[in-house]
Structure formats: C-alpha cells, structure tokens
Amino acid sequence: MDVIGIIDYGMGNLLSVFHALERVGSDVRICRKPSELAEVERIVLPGVGAFGDCMANLTQRGFVDALHEAVIRQKKPILGICLGMQAMARRSYEGAECPGLGWFNADVVRLKPRDLSLRIPQVGWNDVTFRPDSPLFAGIPAKPDFYFVHSFQMQCEDPDQVEASCDYGGPVTAAVRKDNIFATQFHPEKSQDYGLRLLENFLKWCP
C-alpha cells in the first residue's frame, strides 16, 4: 500500500484529513519537513487561512522546492484541498497580489456571485457537476453535495483542467486536474460518504 503524506506547514486542521484518510485505509504520515516527502508515494496539501500566509509558510519551511521535486519531476500524485488547491495557481489576488506554485494557468480571485443576496464566504453544502469520465469521482452519483467554505476561487484559463464546478451565483471551480495533480475547493474530509469515496479514489488513482 502506498504511504500517503499530509504536509504540515502550520495552516489549519490536519487531524480531520488524517482521520478521513485512515478511515479509507491508507498508511498516513504527517510530513513536517520537506525531506519527508521523499518517503511517501502520495501527497496531500491541505490548508485553511490566508493565501499570503500559506505561501510564506510553504516557502519558509522549504516545501516549495521539495514539492516541485516530488510532484513535477517525480510525478507523485498530489491532492490539494481548499487553500491547498488555490496555492497551485499562478497567483492570488487575496490581499496583496501574491505568486503561487504556478502548476495551473489560473488566478485566485474573490467570489463575485451575480445574486447579491448570496453571502461571502460560501459556507455549506453545494452540489457539483463533474466530468463523467473523472477517475476521482468514480462511483459517486451525479450532482453530489460537498462541503465548501471559501471566499476566493480559482479561475482557470484552460477549461480542460476544470474537473468539477458548482454554482454560486455563477460558475465556481470545485475541482481541477492536470497530469498527476488533483485538487478540490471543497473539503472531502468533511463531506461524509461522498468525500470519503473521493479520497479512496485518490488513493487508487494512477495518473
């Protein structure tokens, strides 16, 4: 069985991701040092909070280079969750403009629902539309609800990279995929059965 490493870079609640991955039967480790990424076959990049802090923490702890090595060169499958997904964009406009990891041709921008009565952040369960051939959503019925909590979203220039979307006064990117990189704006670890199924699919995924 693949060993899966959750990156701990001081951005939020790792315990839920840890428990959820354990529940679907993986050998989970918390990676506090960049060198530990060499010891795992799959990676999860979680994260809640502010984009600027997220990139500063990843950089300070030396994870930016280690991630590039593990994900871009060695092609280890990675799952980004919430802010962990946004970090994979080219840049974010949350606060001062800030560069991201640059794995997707995408910018992170504030949610701007057309319906002005919709609240920011988007908090709660929203149904997503996913690509029917998506290996990550295999076995999940159409229009499943997942748990979202966010004020910013990833806007992709390449529609082929959008794996799933939801509606929040206009289309919102719910998941992206490119090569060995998969990421969700929603929290699979907080989305009960469908979320656990998605994590299980990630463990089996052979990009």
Binding site: L15, S16, H19, A20, R23, Y147, V149, H187, E189, K190, S191, Q192, G195, L196
Partner: peptide, 11 residues
C-alpha cells in the same frame, strides 16, 4: 473534540 473528530466526517 478529539474523539468526535475521529468518528464524524462533517464540519
């Protein structure tokens, strides 16, 4: 909190 987080998968 610890015990709950190990067995419930919702926020």
């Amino acid at each position: 909190v610890k015990k709950a987080s190990a067995v419930i998968f919702m926020p």
